[in-house]
Design a binder for these strands. Sequence first.
RNA 1: GCGAGCGUGGCCAAGUGGUUAAGGCAGAGGUUUGUGGUACCUCCAUGCGUGGGUUCAAGUCCCAUCGUUCGCCCCA
Length: 429
Amino acid sequence: MGIIQAIRGTRDLLPEDIVYWQKVESVTRKLLTQAAYQEIRTPIFEGTDLFERGIGENTDVVGKEMYTFLDRGDRSLTLRPEGTAGVVRSYIEHKLHGQGGVQRLWYTGPMFRYERPQAGRQRQFHQIGVELLGSASARADVEVIALANDLLGNLGLKNLTLSLNSVGNGEDRQNYREALVNYLSPYQQELDKDSQERLQRNPLRILDSKDQRTQEIAQNAPQIWQYLGENSRKHFDTVQQLLTELGIAYQLNHCLVRGLDYYSHTAFEIQSSDLGAQATVCGGGRYDGLVSQLGGPETPAVGWAIGMERLILLLQQIQPKPLPELDFYLVSRGEKAESQALILAHKLRKLDFSVELDLSGSAFNKQFKRADRSGAAICLVLGDEEAHKQTVNLKWMGTKEQQAIAQTELLGMVEQLRQQIEAQKNPVI
RNA sequence: GCGAGCGUGGCCAAGUGGUUAAGGCAGAGGUUUGUGGUACCUCCAUGCGUGGGUUCAAGUCCCAUCGUUCGCCCCA
């Protein structure tokens, strides 16, 4: 088409969509505030090296999915592909670690990855994320997992599965990596093409290949749990034990490997069976090395990110679109009546009512039709007659009862009307 | 980056090479200068994503391009 349109992989959130976003945002804000998390907002672009160093140069995200460009000062900048790196940069830069103890932070906002759009995947997408910095305790891992679980639960989502794994510390992973390569090498020719390439660069990723033959081979591969050191083992056990005590169901999955290099110990994902191929709603884990790697003090940390678009796809499946709530719909016809209606609408809004004014000037029956569709509790009618007598016709849309009252009187019976409207919204059974 | 499907008015759609492109919803006007979830009438695409091509003839076939959908890869 000749018209200008939104860039591929980006989307406008229209009024009919936005009710879901506002719902998610308000539930999130409430839950995380209750858990003593504070919101943080960082820029949506950063220096490219932050992501290269933070996420890892060998990851797909950095290797082929970043929106990177030179600004007018020849600096290489990148639209953030995820939230953690920026939060950690900010944490270090503003010395939030200096404030002692742990920092509990959350964020929400757009992220950017250059990928082929697909169900549940866009080039600009939005995440809600949580970062708990400064605690190495397994309780921190579990606190954070429980929050994700509660957030999804509070929104009424069903059919979710929490998968859990430990990828150990750097040393554990190094030992395991060698063992895995030793095991896989004899099968090299049988692996799928992608996995063959990964054998040297990133062998752990081979474990969650979707290729059937590769999966069969991976079935009998050594498991990372056998290579966890004592501390790693203990941490992992404690996480499981605490999850059980909290009554949070999980599935152990030794093949769960996350795509960003900074994860250590706990890695987890929450998936939904009600999405397409992109089924992961929430992903996260522990990243004890990241803060120091980016130039801060040794700081253990855990966090997760939830994909808003995927969350909302699920929410739309279970929640019918909420109707906008409206107290008054004003119908008017004739010059004098129309201006009186405008003034009346203004006054009612000042009294804290929600009011829609019909501006069409069309026939009364058309205006009533719109009043009906607006979902308003009350329709106020002003024609020549009312305008003349300074009255207004008050009609309850539910019962069709109506009465003529003086405009001044209407404004005086505010409390009574408010109660009646409330009673209608929540009928006593 | 790779593979497959799809693209008709604001929305949903029929149409499978032959004359003026069904229908529904929404919208506008009217029957009814003033009373709504009902009825009836009228109006609402010189054009079928865009650009080429084949043909006497193209929304219908071919090519390209853009967008979209579903996968792969990867992730939220």
